[in-house]
Nucleic acid binder design. Structure first.
Length: 439
RNA sequence: CGGAGCGUAGCGCAGCCUGGUAGCGCAUCAGUCUGGGGGACUGGAGGUCGUGGGUUCGAAUCCCGCCGCUCCGACCA
């Protein structure tokens, strides 16, 4: 993408409404624009990040055996009346009436709908387990939307739902999803800590929230250094496979024996048993939440399958959410400096920015065009006529992992300057060398 | 939902108290010079002062209603 003609409206000053770092930077770098309280339009740069996060989430869900579907945003009220949540959900649910005076709603979540889909078609225990997921916009009419996309009213969420014949199966599904989550966050360059969470009115002992560390997080968290040391992506010895029950058991053991708690659930007695050099604490942002809730919906909505003995049983369910749009903000909270965003390579909107410091200089132009072509569209070429300083400032603001700086001095000698955004380190290299380093 | 604040050009703000010409910086457009960390100069364009009503000869300014947005607290992917 050529910056001179890109719809990337960067701002020199911070809009008054943006208070926290991610919100400020998302507006300044031209990722989003607000259209109402808690509702945002995604512009090219922001959308590319959102899609990258989606891609990683999707790959990890698929890898764990979940199947992607896409349920609608608008749902009929009847389903929610069946489960009893039409009344319980209260004013957070956006209720709509269509032209036939039918009660509809903009989905805040999809347990009812997925249970309905399931009960229509799955009739035998032989078809279990099933894990279905989708990545879809949700609407929750929050009393107080804030922090930009971190607490929006309309937000993009990956929600998965597991159906198993019995409790043991549900636990296995839960563990698979938990592993998928840890892998997902690691791939995004985030340190995520799973914390035991309240299960609410449903009860049960299986609910975890996933907290990523960021200085501006909303809650204080305490955890064992072990969570930082585990490599969830490793496939070899010591790694974890979704396929092997013993791996999942060992993984779950790891996740639940090391200490991790938010300040509400902080247990100072247990914390004291963690040795000093392994104690970690900081601020955290919740980016995912998983639940096991058994037969709550399959019972209330009459979903049954035939068991091995021919009798009808209510499958056991779990649900698993990742706040996809929230992650964009959360990553920025976890990774920025005074100059702007610092994208992890895996979700950066572009692999690199190419800064042409002297548009019109034959050597600079030719070199930049050649580099730009080599990226096949996966680079942002700053071909504006602005001065160098403005280009540096915008590139830092937008947070491209790499900057390839092409100036007249270097271009004449066939050299470019390669800057790593995260460290600020710069080296002078040949264009070919720059390309191979960026990979 | 309780408490507080804000709405004037794309963004950041002043003007309001004490009513009378709508202003500044940045951005933007044209031109000249410049050219490695948000340049300089010259000239332009851009505003129903959130909205409806009231007071007044006259309202951005005073009064009332409404709408929108933000912040703090309780709740949430």
């Amino acid at each position: 993408m050529r910056l001179s003609h890109a719809f990337i409206p960067t701002l020199k000053e911070t809009p008054n409404e943006a208070q926290i770092a991610s919100h400020r930077l998302m507006l300044r770098a031209g990722l989003v624009r607000q259209t109402s309280a808690g509702i945002y339009a995604w512009l090219p740069l922001g959308l590319r990040v959102l899609r990258n996060i989606e891609r990683i989430v999707r790959e990890e869900q698929d890898g764990a055996g979940a199947q992607e579907i896409l349920m609608p945003t608008i749902q009929p009220a009847e389903l929610w009346k069946e489960s009893g949540r039409y009344e319980d959900y209260g004013k957070e649910m956006l209720r709509i009436r269509d032209r036939h005076e039918r009660d509809m709603l903009y989905g805040p979540t999809n347990e009812e709908m997925v249970t309905d889909l399931f009960r229509q078609s799955v009739k035998s225990y032989r078809e279990l387990p099933q894990i279905l997921y989708h990545i879809q916009w949700k609407f929750r009419d929050e009393v107080r939307p804030r922090f930009g996309v971190m607490r929006g009213r309309e937000f993009l969420m990956k929600d998965a739902y597991s159906f198993d014949l019995d409790h043991a199966g549900a636990v296995a599904s839960y563990r698979k999803m938990m592993l998928a989550y840890m892998r997902t966050f690691q791939r995004m360059g985030l340190k995520a800590i799973p914390m035991e969470a309240d299960t609410g009115p449903i009860g049960g002992d299986l609910s975890h929230e996933f907290i990523i560390l960021a200085p501006t997080g909303e809650s204080q968290v305490y955890y064992d250094a072990a969570f930082e040391e585990i490599d969830y992506l490793s496939a070899g010895a010591g790694g974890f496979s979704h396929e092997k029950p013993e791996d999942l058991a060992r993984f779950f053991q790891e996740m639940t024996t090391h200490y991790a708690a938010t300040d509400e659930k902080h247990d100072t007695a247990r914390w004291d048993q963690v040795t000093a050099e392994r104690k970690r604490e900081g601020r955290g942002i919740e980016v995912g939440h998983i639940f096991y809730f058994g037969t709550k919906y399959t019972k209330s909505m009459g979903a049954t399958v035939a068991g091995p003995d021919g009798k009808q049983v209510h499958p056991e369910m779990g649900s698993y959410g990742i706040g996809v749009s929230r992650l964009v903000g959360a990553v920025i909270e976890a990774s920025h400096d005074d100059a702007g965003i610092i994208w992890p390579d895996s979700i950066a909107p572009f692999k690199a920015a190419i800064l042409n410091l002297k548009i019109g200089d034959a050597a600079c132009d030719a070199l930049c065009e050649q580099l730009y072509a080599a990226f096949g569209g996966n680079a942002l070429y700053d071909d504006r006529t602005d001065r160098a300083g403005a280009k540096f400032a915008d590139a830092d603001l937008m947070g491209h992992p790499w900057q390839i700086v092409v100036g007249p001095r270097g271009a004449a000698a066939g050299k470019v300057e390669l800057k790593r955004r995260a460290t600020g380190e710069r080296v002078e290299v040949t264009p070919a060398e720059a390309l191979s380093r960026i990979g």
